[in-house]
């Protein structure tokens, strides 16, 4: 009897326990990241600046660290967390909807569309706001096109979506390549190339404010319907006989995941691997049940991108684009996960 109870605790509370620990880890990572940078800010200063916003603390720090913290460090750290969280969540959600462990946030062309939108804006000398907006709109547009094409396709809805995604993605990639070809090789082409590599270098508080709305619109429903996402992985027919409206849930998940992906990519550029690798790491930690998997993916994604971004801005005197580091870290990491001994979880 006692062993039964302990056994039960071990399994049902395991997920919640790990998620809680990840939350603590994220807070620690954020606190450390606040201190790191070209202009180091001491732990004491960070502590004072953060808590002076909510508690009446006498100012014991200079103006300069506060300025750097509020205008540079804070938005950058927040954006790294948000983008990491979103890409990883979108990846986990798409994997469930498409019943496919290889699905990543760009499966429906959200990234390819964003890249095209950004390149187009750069070609027309758009400001950074215009570039972000254009990337965001084209990202949503691409997924909408994919969705409507798949509606016309016969057969399994999921396969139709994946195939339409591949086609439309390649169309937009061709468009991006063409823009690169006609872009001015002195300033536009490097700008496009740099954008495509992915970076959080331009993060401002206004960028965070822009991104956080669509991210919230997407993340909240994904968190709310996460249990039903489990049933979706069994396929439409089975889900329906179990009382779950598979088409409706899939639509909600796709719209939500697309919003968070579009918002992330439009502010950060192309950052690969996070959306594929992190959900799998989360699966290894808490299992495949979306009940714990979704929050675990969110937190792990945030931690991962925050750490990677710290390397990106501190390792060399010039910034290393994030996309390069995530690919460098992601691919070997994924191979390790794949070949690691142990249970399939």
């Amino acid at each position: 009897m006692i062993t039964k109870v302990v056994n039960k605790m071990k399994h049902t509370d395991k997920g919640a326990y790990i998620v809680m620990n990840l939350g603590i880890l994220l807070l620690l990572a954020v606190f450390v990241s606040f201190q790191l940078g070209r202009y180091p800010i001491s732990a004491k200063e960070v502590f004072g600046i953060v808590f002076s916003k909510v508690l009446p603390i006498e100012k014991y720090w200079a103006d300069r660290p506060e300025f750097v913290f509020i205008n540079i460090r804070l938005p950058r750290v927040l954006l790294a967390c948000l983008v990491g969280c979103c890409l990883s969540t979108a990846g986990a959600a798409y994997q469930g909807v498409f019943q496919n462990p290889m699905a990543a946030p760009d499966i429906l062309g959200a990234s390819a569309g964003a890249a095209f939108g950004a390149a187009l804006a750069i070609l027309h000398h758009g400001s950074s706001t215009v570039i972000t907006l254009s990337a965001f709109c084209f990202s949503l547009l691409t997924v909408a096109i994919v969705f409507f094409i798949s509606k016309k396709a016969k057969g399994k809805a999921v396969i139709g979506l994946i195939l339409a995604g591949i086609m439309v993605k390649s169309l937009f990639s061709a468009g991006t390549s063409f823009i690169k070809l006609v872009a001015d090789p002195n300033d536009q082409l490097p700008a496009i190339t740099f954008w495509l590599l992915g970076s959080l270098a331009g993060a401002k508080l206004s960028t965070v404010a822009f991104a956080v709305v669509p991210m919230g619109i997407g993340l909240i429903p994904l968190l709310l319907i996460r249990w039903r996402l489990n049933i979706l992985t069994l396929g439409d027919d089975e889900a329906k006989t179990m009382g779950v409206n598979a088409r409706l849930i899939r639509l909600i998940v796709i719209i939500s995941a697309t919003f968070v992906t579009a918002a992330s990519v439009s502010v950060s550029g192309m950052i690969g691997w996070v959306g594929l690798v992190i959900p799998h790491l989360a699966r290894k930690l808490v299992g495949n049940n979306y009940n714990s998997l979704m929050p675990a993916s969110m937190l792990l994604g945030a931690i991962f991108l925050l750490v990677v971004d710290n390397f990106s801005r501190n390792l060399l005197t010039t910034e290393i684009p994030l996309g390069i580091i995530t690919a460098l870290v992601g691919a070997p990491f994924f191979i390790c996960l794949m070949t690691r001994k142990g249970d399939v979880y």
């Binding site: 319907i225 249990w227 489990n230 992985t233 779950v244 495949n288």
Partner: peptide
């Protein structure tokens, strides 16, 4: 199934019709 659920989780999925859309 494409994802490996525990036997208990698999059985628990059958109860989904009894809970509202946003709960588990």
């Amino acid at each position: 199934t494409p994802f490996n659920y525990s036997v208990f989780e698999m059985v628990l999925m059958g109860t989904t019709v009894q809970v509202s859309a946003f709960s588990k």
